[in-house]
């Protein structure tokens, strides 16, 4: 089996995207706590849902990035 090498820069970029997704999910939780007049303890008690939401957001961004890559693919120079 071939070893898989991931560049440090790629890893850093993916981590940053996921952290942004997590912050977005936390922001959504804060928003709905205000909108639904829910207790602020849900910031901590519902963290598992926030985590799952961040992964969903990360996956959506991944799909968008994949689509962009596919669109750009024919215009790339061979080389």
């Amino acid at each position: 089996m071939k070893d898989l090498h991931i560049k440090k820069s790629v890893l850093q970029r993916e981590l940053i995207i996921w952290i942004v997704s997590l912050l977005f999910a936390v922001g959504v939780n804060v928003y709905v706590i205000i909108v639904y007049n829910a207790p602020w303890t849900e910031l901590v008690t519902q963290i598992h849902y926030v985590f799952v939401l961040s992964l969903v957001v990360y996956f959506i961004i991944f799909l968008i990035r994949g689509a962009g890559y596919l669109v750009r693919l024919p215009f790339r120079r061979k080389g």
Partner: peptide
């Protein structure tokens, strides 16, 4: 009791 706000969303 209401479900958590995030689930209600």
């Amino acid at each position: 009791p209401s479900p958590p706000a995030i689930l209600r969303l």
